[in-house]
Design a protein around this nucleic acid. Sequence first.
RNA 1: GGAGAGGUGGCCGAGUUGGUUGAAGGCGCUCGCCUGCUAAGCGAGUAAGGGGGUUAAGCCUCCUUCGAGGGUUCGAAUCCCUCCUUCUCCGCCA
Length: 436
Amino acid sequence: MLDIKLIREEPEKVKEALQKRGADVGLEEILSLDQARRELLSAIEAKRAERNSASEGVGKLMREAGQAKKEGRSSAELEVEVGKLKERSSGLGKEIAELDNQLRPIEDSLRELLLLVPNIPHETVPVGLDASKNEIIRRVGDPREFGFEPKAHWDIGEDLNIIDFKRAAKIAGARFALYLGAGAQLERALINFMLDIQSREHGYTEVFPPVLVNKESMTATGQLPKFAEDLFKCADDDLWLIPTAEVPVTNIHREDVFPVGKLPVKYTAYTPCFRREAGAHGRETRGLIRQHQFNKVELVKFVEPETSYAELESLTADAESILQKLELPYRVISLCGGDLGFSAAKTYDIEVWLPSYNEYKEISSCSNFEDFQARRANIRYRPMEGKPLFVHTLNGSGLAIGRTVAAILENYQQEDGSVVVPKVLKTYLQMDTISV
RNA sequence: GGAGAGGUGGCCGAGUUGGUUGAAGGCGCUCGCCUGCUAAGCGAGUAAGGGGGUUAAGCCUCCUUCGAGGGUUCGAAUCCCUCCUUCUCCGCCA
């Protein structure tokens, strides 16, 4: 959520910034609602002040009247005054209620509209409206030269009998995977490996959160209200399946104020993730790339605003380190304005080389949300002096597990159909190669 | 799911015959005094959000908030209703 003050004071600047991401947001309605809200509020508050003082007067006079009676004096005059004040106060109460009834729908629609406004891109975000304008930041490692025709990971998986898409479809439907034997073990090994690196070497605190969350949590991180159709929802409860651990982990600190000196706070979490993939029909239907359920190790940071862009660089480096250790070739790109997610101010995607696609494929997305989520979730910190301020939140995949499995199978495949296990995983898997 | 007891400021914790209690007291924190240094002691300050005014920073003023939402009342932390949540006991259960 953007700061209403920013919209109020510099609407042109906000509009311009949002155009950078191709979002045509009608700020006019927001501005006029904001104006109406403040006018009503002033009127209501003036009347409340008046009513409060009248009510206070009632209390005072009643005490005086009680005192008078005790002393045997007449309290009749005072009681008349009390009656007048009560009447006045009561009348004001009705006026206030009336104005309140006008105010409420205005505040509701104002908030509704504000929740639909995306974040403002950072100044370093490349200009452009689609993926073709994304900027390549760096490449690490070279795609391997195969001396044979490399297979796609879904064929490798089925040939080695470690991934079964047909049975997964029978159990649940399209876009699900059933891992078997070494495949299931590889998935589990990667989860452990990534959590170990991020928690032991990079200082993230490991957490394991709920994977069903309520509406408030989904709203805080920006999935709701706008993207409900991308989510799985429980029919009889206000519970939603998380599309990423970002949701429950960021919400750990919803409504919190971090004490002085506590930041940065860093978490890593493994969770399954659930996405409806509405609108993705026919795209990447084969293999592990686009699933309704997939595993992911996530990195989440809460930081002070001044440091957030440096923290984005280090968070991205933390995610990259996994690919380096796995010796998988990848590149890092900076998303242009039009390709940016709703809540993000800046995003680096990390893309791993996939021989079957003959291109780099997203395996991690690392973003700085600045105070966009913090404002929605009311997450603040206490600076050395002054009032609490909103933190900046960041997160990134470190990494998506299924896509990592796909990358390992494809990049480490041998001509005989077996797959060599990456060096760093050998102790986790207790095997050197996966073969039939 | 059933029964009972709670949910108050950064933390702990008073406050139920409704009325200077936005909230005693304590802890913590900040500033000052005291002190050879530290500790102890003394004094003062210390919630958040939002409106309006004014300013160079600052400040003034009003409103809202005692789990959330309704209700009663001139007036509610205090009374009533609904919901959420925590704890204890019972039931159920991986």
